[in-house]
Design a protein around this nucleic acid. Sequence first.
DNA 1: TTGAAATAGTTGCATAACTAACTATATGTC
DNA 2: GACATATAGTTAGTTATGCAACTATTTCAA
Lengths: 146, 146
Amino acid sequence: MSNNQFKRGELYSVINGMASTAVARRLQKNFRLAGLEITIEQWSVLYHLWKQDALSQQELCNRTFRDKPSITRLIDNLEKQKLVKRMPSKEDRRINLVCLTETAKLLQDKTIELANQTMDEALVGVNKNEIEIVKLVFQKVYDNLL
Amino acid sequence: MSNNQFKRGELYSVINGMASTAVARRLQKNFRLAGLEITIEQWSVLYHLWKQDALSQQELCNRTFRDKPSITRLIDNLEKQKLVKRMPSKEDRRINLVCLTETAKLLQDKTIELANQTMDEALVGVNKNEIEIVKLVFQKVYDNLL
DNA sequence: TTGAAATAGTTGCATAACTAACTATATGTC
DNA sequence: GACATATAGTTAGTTATGCAACTATTTCAA
């Protein structure tokens, strides 16, 4: 096996193991320090609902890049914590519309502020151009594997 | 809240939700299609052992960016599948050296070839310079949050 | 040399991931 | 209209993650 093969493998290792989990862990920690009892996975669902409320579970799958069982259980837990509510769609009885509660709406500003602080910590020494390239590369990777 | 805050949050969402899981899922699928029964997490441990055998669990934590309980259980599962073996260190009786079995050594070439194919699929249209920037950014992010 | 602090590893608990198999509703074709 | 197919969501089973609390061993310092 050539040394080059190992080098390419290393990028996977970098992408999968390092920054995403480091950022996620730090954000989770910052939530906890602020007395917020939500997980980053729950937050990522709320984040999309803050942008547009009353999405179907399938739509949340698409936007958060998770599969259906994962969303089912995330919504289960969010419902237990009274942060969202499943509302049956009137047009299509297969569909649950996931709606924010008032409690969840109040969390928006604080958690997004914490996420921004966390990203600022994470991105010290990284310039705008580099960030754009990372986003571009990730978009390409996602499109390639879709 | 300013629109700019949402934009910064979006990068987190991109980093955490998109490429890493898309790549991981595709690699897992490719393992399965090839009849390999290992998970990508197990593979990431084996990957470091192929580079250097007989590492302590703590050293595997550092290299795979996982915490100690995660490594304990990954090693448990790898041991069940007879891919590694815990060997007590003679210098320090607290330490387990994790050693590859012959079976695991045979998996190296095939799985790394699959990982390379997967990365090639994922990185269509991404040039070397962009890859270098992604690696650099992730290294900076990791160092910032350490 | 003995007792405190650090380090290596494990276990219990809660959340989350993926696959496969399932139910219920909607759509489309003969 | 009836039946095959597609779509939305749930459930079960296995693996993995993080944190906190635990044991065992080593190191360091009074």
